[in-house]
């Protein structure tokens, strides 16, 4: 069943812009990204938007739909009121390039700061022996598709440009957590993440977990355990030592 959908899309660039109203024929069962594509093909050929997989796997099509950070390719039209317009705006936390495309370079700079995986002295050379149960915690974080929706929603940087220099954001807190929990990694990045990557600025509002399309429990399984481990290394070296020996106290 085809019907006319009202879309309000932010059009503009770094120098400014505004919401523009469109009406576009769509089909039942389509997603917001389809509507955007129809619009491009019919009347807005130069409208900038990122996408690749159209299946929630690549994390390219992030935008704010009716104010909520979401993937456009997973936002089914059937979940919206038919007569209400759907408003699509670019991610607010990052500078606009054009229309729905923002400059997400912030995230790539934070990624470059992460000290790489470093195998332990016990097993320096792959193939490693690691049990499934031990890799699972880190595997949860490696599901991240780098859509940066969590980064976009985090209030520490959403409206505080000045915090950006010293705050890596939830996506990278789970990257540090992943390395920390990797069964065969030797590095210790806890001081670093606390003192220089801004873990301390996070006050566990959990907004990041709520928007994650991969349903990664960013706060419960990543940030909070990291904060505990940081506390360990800072206040109780003995307990930390015991924990590292595989004796959870």
């Amino acid at each position: 069943m085809t019907y006319d959908l009202k879309l309000r899309v932010w059009r503009g660039d770094a120098s400014g812009g505004a919401l523009r109203d469109y009406t576009v024929p769509v089909d039942d069962g389509e997603v917001v990204l389809d509507a955007v594509h129809h619009l491009q093909a019919r009347e807005a050929g130069d409208m900038a938007v990122r996408w690749n997989c159209k299946a929630g796997k690549c994390g390219s099509c992030s935008a704010e739909i009716n104010g909520r950070p979401r993937l456009m390719c997973l936002a089914r039209l059937s979940t919206f009121e038919r007569d209400e317009p759907i408003t699509i705006t670019p991610l607010r936390t990052f500078p606009v390039v054009k229309d729905l495309v923002t400059d997400v370079g912030f995230n790539y700079r934070k990624a470059a700061e992460v000290p790489a995986f470093s195998p332990s002295a016990a097993q320096p050379q792959a193939p490693f022996k690691m049990a499934q149960i031990d890799v699972e915690r880190s595997q949860e974080f490696r599901k991240c598709i780098e859509c940066f929706l969590c980064q976009d929603t985090c209030h520490v940087i959403r409206d505080h440009e000045d915090n950006k220099a010293a705050f890596s954001g939830p996506r990278f807190f789970i990257r540090y957590a992943e390395l920390e929990m990797h069964p065969n990694d030797d590095g210790d990045r806890r001081q670093l993440v606390q003192q220089e990557r801004g873990l301390g600025l996070c006050n566990i509002t959990k907004c990041c977990s709520e928007v994650c399309p991969e349903h990664i429990k960013i706060t419960d399984n990543g940030i909070i355990p990291m904060k505990e481990r940081v506390a360990d290394v800072r206040y109780d070296p003995v307990r930390f030592f015991r924990r590292r020996q595989g004796n959870p106290s």
Partner: peptide
């Protein structure tokens, strides 16, 4: 494949702890 593991990839494991 082992090289990917060397660089930090985490494949699913067999019961013996090898790459499944």
């Amino acid at each position: 494949v082992w090289e990917l593991e060397q660089w930090g990839a985490l494949f699913d494991r067999t019961a013996e702890g090898l790459i499944s």
